[in-house]
Amino acid sequence: IDVRFTVNGLDVTVRVRTEEIAERVKELAKNGVDWREIQRIAEELNK
């Protein structure tokens, strides 16, 4: 599942395995978490 969001004007796409992880990623993006941090968290959750 590809999750797309915009952080500080940057369009970011993170690929995740499940809808649940996708929701977590969207939540982080909404809360203004840095995209590199979101990427790292997504990689952890995908394991």
Rank of each mutant, 00 (worst) to 15 (best):
I1V: 08
I1H: 07
I1N: 03
I1R: 06
D2F: 15
D2K: 10
R4M: 13
R4F: 12
R4Y: 11
R4C: 12
R4E: 08
R4S: 11
F5M: 11
F5H: 02
F5D: 01
F5R: 01
F5N: 01
F5P: 00
T6S: 11
T6Q: 12
T6W: 09
T6A: 07
T6I: 12
T6L: 09
V7A: 09
V7H: 08
V7L: 09
V7Y: 11
V7K: 04
V7R: 05
N8A: 09
N8E: 09
N8V: 04
N8T: 04
N8P: 03
N8S: 07
N8R: 06
G9R: 02
G9D: 06
G9F: 03
G9L: 03
L10N: 09
L10Y: 13
L10D: 07
L10G: 05
L10C: 06
L10R: 12
D11N: 12
D11Q: 15
D11S: 13
D11C: 11
D11V: 15
V12T: 04
V12Q: 05
V12A: 04
T13Q: 07
T13S: 12
T13D: 03
V14H: 01
V14E: 00
R15L: 08
R15Q: 08
R15W: 15
R15M: 10
R15V: 10
R15C: 10
R15I: 08
R15S: 09
V16M: 02
V16E: 00
R17Q: 11
R17W: 13
R17T: 08
R17F: 13
T18F: 03
T18A: 03
T18C: 03
T18W: 02
E19W: 15
E19A: 13
E19Q: 15
E19Y: 13
E19H: 14
E19S: 13
E19F: 12
E19P: 14
E19L: 14
E19I: 13
E19M: 14
E20S: 10
E20C: 09
E20Q: 13
E20F: 12
E20Y: 13
I21K: 00
I21V: 06
I21H: 07
I21A: 06
I21D: 07
I21Y: 03
A22V: 04
A22F: 05
A22C: 04
E23V: 11
E23W: 12
E23A: 12
E23N: 13
R24D: 02
R24S: 05
V25N: 00
K26E: 05
K26S: 07
K26N: 06
K26A: 08
K26I: 14
K26V: 10
E27G: 07
E27H: 09
E27P: 01
E27V: 10
L28I: 04
L28M: 13
L28Y: 07
A29L: 12
A29V: 15
A29F: 15
A29G: 05
A29E: 04
A29D: 03
K30S: 11
K30E: 11
K30A: 14
K30V: 09
K30G: 08
K30Y: 10
K30P: 01
K30T: 10
N31M: 15
N31H: 10
N31R: 13
N31W: 10
N31C: 12
N31T: 11
N31L: 14
G32W: 04
G32V: 06
G32Q: 07
G32N: 09
V33I: 11
V33R: 06
V33H: 07
V33Y: 09
V33F: 09
V33K: 06
V33C: 06
D34L: 10
D34I: 07
D34F: 10
D34R: 08
W35P: 10
W35K: 03
W35M: 10
W35S: 06
R36L: 14
R36D: 13
R36T: 14
R36K: 13
R36W: 12
R36Q: 14
R36V: 14
R36M: 13
E37C: 09
E37N: 07
E37H: 06
E37R: 07
E37D: 10
E37G: 04
E37I: 13
I38L: 08
I38A: 01
I38D: 00
I38F: 03
I38P: 00
I38G: 00
I38M: 03
Q39E: 09
Q39V: 15
Q39M: 15
Q39C: 12
R40L: 10
R40N: 07
R40G: 05
R40V: 08
I41M: 07
I41T: 05
I41S: 03
I41E: 05
I41V: 08
I41K: 04
I41H: 04
A42P: 00
A42F: 04
A42D: 00
A42I: 12
E43P: 01
E43T: 10
E43M: 11
E43V: 08
E44S: 07
E44I: 10
E44N: 07
E44H: 08
L45N: 02
L45E: 04
N46L: 03
N46Q: 03
K47R: 10
K47W: 12
K47C: 09
K47V: 12
K47L: 14
